[in-house]
Write a protein that binds this DNA or RNA. Sequence first.
DNA 1: TCTGGGGTCCTAACGCAA
DNA 2: TCTGTTGCGTTAGGACCC
Length: 409
Amino acid sequence: MFYVAVELRRNPHLVGKPVVVGGDGSRGVVAAASYEARRFGVFSAMSSSQAKRLCPQAIFLPGDHGHYSDVSSEVFEVFNEFTPLVEGLSLDEAFLDVSGSLRLFGDGVTIGHEVRRRVAQTTQLTCSVGVAPNKFLAKLASVVAKPRASREGVVAGHGVYEVVPTHELEFLHPLAVDALWGVGPVTFEKLNGLGIKTVGDLANFDLAVLIAVLGDSLGRHLSELAKGNDDRDVEPDRDAKSIGHEETFSSDITEYQIAHDHLVRLADSVATRCRQSGVGARTISLKIKYANFQLVTRSVSVEMPVSSSQAMVRLLEPLLLGIDLSAGVRLLGISTRNLVAPDQQMSLFDSSSSDLSANNLDAAWSTTTSAIDEIRDRFGESAIKPASTIGQERDPSSSKWGPSDPKSK
DNA sequence: TCTGGGGTCCTAACGCAA
DNA sequence: TCTGTTGCGTTAGGACCC
């Protein structure tokens, strides 16, 4: 409940009240709920309308990601006092490899308590710590260390919980399989179909059958985890592999021009973040969720990485044109992949400002012209047209990607 | 009555080139 | 010159995580 905890820190008068961070509208969901709200059955990922029915008096806050990110940095500064090997998992979770810090700070459990004390002291936030010989067991241990919230109330956690070396399997094997990192609803059902209920069942199960059902990678991976094996390193400073932005509309969209306006706005936000991160994208994806919740993605890759919104829009326009909007679109998203750092690019990234500023126009235009050439190569001359004319030229009889038959084209 | 937004990783199908 | 194999990049989709 990190978001709620941060909100309570800066709004102390809300302490003790049912507080929900998340979308307020009819299409919002709960991102975090205070323990008081959880007593009414309100939990993360629940639709806001359902949360309101369960707890009409809940105080909804819209969420302030920038502020949460700042507070997260405060917490991570504390982590860095104990070891430089800190791998952030999200704003409120991290792996710390303290194997080089034992002489200085004491054993893992001692460090865990000290981390909790210093985080509370400097940020007024509580945290839970799992201590174990590897990442995956530490993650599970941290779950045990957390307080438990239910309709009946809150049960305090251990704060720090250690999985003692040589006793890993005693901890691991009684757990339900979906406690494993990587077992979601789908995999859980498949494992149940094999009669696998606990991690211990999984550890003793025939690997060949597991691979046949789950695939080579996941089958081997889960089998190893079930035996307590996880040799993944703690990796600090991992670079982002994609940057994206998506939005669910309060009502479904059916008109090209409106969709295009949103596309431009989303592209500007993604492109700005790309430039702030000093990267250009070689692959740009368009994501559409139809009114019936069917999800489709369409993507293009280009030789020369792009980081201007103009270039992204020009690349995505032909793809948007291939989408049948008449069925109603509830979400539009842009995502970039194959990110390339500046020293591997031609010098297109001199500015971190918005595309709309004058000093970036030359770079933006040079990127755009190369993008246009790419579009011409891939989609033909007819794809190169002023954006304002595209929507009017759609042939209603032509088949487009639509929610009913996404593979028709 | 409904079901977000930010990501990571994996897989299958397919085209192309060596 | 033709054919089959292999490897790789691209594209689309899906499971999963917080």
